[in-house]
Amino acid sequence: MRTLRQLALPLALIVLWEILVALSGSPRAPRPSTTALKAVEMLADGTLLAALATSLGRVFGGFVLATLLAVPLGLAMGTLPVVERNLDPLVESFRPIAAIAILPLVILWIGTGNLAAVTIVAYAAFFPILINTIAGVKRIDRSLIRAARTMGISPLTRLRTVVLPAALPSILVGMRIGLGIAWTAIIAAELAVGAKAGTSGGIGQMMFVFYAYSIQLSGIVVCMAAVGLVAMLLDRGLRALLARAFPWSHP
């Protein structure tokens, strides 16, 4: 009964969508039935998975790069007030600039290939990870650090054995947010590049090509569903992975 209540609205909207488009008689407008057929077709010929693989590869590359840069920097800014004070103005100046806004510069400097895409993704994921790492380090219970000091543990060892594990839950939250933003950024970048020219590939460009050159737009909806599905799977997957790797934290 409850499941029925939960399904009612989405199902009603899908039926309504089908009817409205059928009535409008527009040949290009996508509808649920054509979308489902298109999805089967795109899955069968492998184009959808290939495009997703391209985008995902870029996201992972940029995400790993962002993590490798942001976590050490965040640890330094969180533990050393001098570093934080001096770098904070730069962080606060660049943080409000969305990754997509620097796309024109990236295209100018690096072009429209994979390296450019990885750069955009890394920029997008960098700030959430950095901010959450700093916050995580600063929230560490002072008595943990003091306890480690009384045991004569050196600062560097302390960073590895106390600060990093204690800040980890917050870092992982930053990584989850960062991964979500990275996925959005790559779609935006591929779309924008696809809109202007170039052959960048990826799911974002695929969407744009469907819009620009296709008489039938169901493919766009298939891509949108794929984007949503991947976003959800990325989030769940990362959460499960991190929960398994660091059982004491709750990402």
């Binding site: 609205l9 779609i187 779309l191 744009f208 469907f210 819009y211 891509c223 949108m224 984007v227 949503g228």
Partner: peptide, 19 residues
Amino acid sequence: FDLLVEMLRPVAGIAWIPL
């Protein structure tokens, strides 16, 4: 509304641009 929200939310706003 939960299911609808959970279905639409992961589809980034940006992904709606072509449509």
